[in-house]
């Protein structure tokens, strides 16, 4: 019994300590955004990596999601003659929820993993120590550019994802379900409000920050060679995904709870 309680306590303490460490890491990373020197090349490289090279993955995710949304909502709504709502359902689901969440999850898999692996490898091969000996703050050089790039680029990716997703819904709606193109587009924009898009982009910025943060955090504290880097990569993706889903709820609550 005592052993059981002790192990609960230990797990809880470890969790609290990790949360504290992550918060400190985040605070330090953010505080460096406001203090020169800056490394524009690093920031640019990360922006291209996160924004540009994630386009195919995010675009494919978005188009199939938009298509399946149209198809599913059509067959569902047909049961009570509400097929007209298909366009609205597609655009609201994409902008408010699926655009940011799916883009966030895909980027977590693509970018979070590569950040953890790259920084983790730099850690275990002494490259981070080498930065220190070259009078360069590893936080400023490695972490801050990634945090900035993640926070800035994911909203842009989500704008693209929203458009592609709506287009996917349109294609299925018009060519398969027989909607009139003009009516479909009309329905798409009629009920779309500014807050739908803004809330989605806010989510995207938060998710982008979280993906970069966890990628850097797990990489930065990885230990013990190839296996340690592997664990760091897994942890970065899993924890970023979980945080994306839970923050998604929290942000939705903040925006739309009455």
């Amino acid at each position: 019994m005592q052993w059981f309680l002790a192990s609960i306590g230990r797990t809880f303490l470890t969790f609290i300590a990790a949360t504290g460490r992550l918060s400190l890491f985040a605070a330090l990373g953010v505080s460096h955004c406001a203090r020169p020197p800056y490394y524009p090349r690093q920031i640019l490289r990360q922006m291209v990596d996160i924004g540009y090279f994630s386009l195919p993955v995010v675009g494919l995710t978005a188009i199939f999601t938009g298509m399946v949304l149209a198809l599913q909502s059509y067959t569902g709504f047909a049961r009570f003659q509400a097929q007209g709502a298909v366009a609205t359902v597609v655009v609201l689901s994409m902008t408010r929820e699926l655009g940011p969440v799916l883009a966030g999850l895909m980027v977590a898999g693509r970018i979070g993993a590569s950040m953890a692996a790259e920084i983790g490898t730099m850690r275990v091969t002494d490259q981070i120590d080498a930065l220190v000996t070259l009078s360069t703050n590893p936080f400023k050089y490695l972490v801050t550019p990634r945090l900035l790039a993640g926070t800035l680029m994911l909203p842009l990716l989500v704008v693209v994802a929203d458009i592609i997703g709506v287009f996917g819904g349109y294609v299925v709606g018009v060519y398969k379900l027989g909607f009139n193109p003009a009516v479909y587009l009309d329905n798409t924009f009629e009920h779309l409000e500014r807050i739908d898009v803004i809330s989605g982009l806010t989510k995207a910025a938060v998710f982008g920050f979280l993906v970069s943060l966890l990628g850097c955090y797990h990489g930065y504290y990885s230990r013990g060679g190839a296996q340690g880097v592997g664990t760091a990569t897994t942890n970065a993706v899993v924890s970023a995904s979980i945080l994306i889903l839970s923050f998604n709820y929290v942000i939705t609550e903040l925006f739309f709870a009455k």
Partner: peptide, 13 residues
């Protein structure tokens, strides 16, 4: 200070 690391620790990027 300059430092030569055991594993060289060159930045591979």
């Amino acid at each position: 200070i300059g430092m030569l690391f055991q594993g060289s620790a060159l930045f591979d990027s």
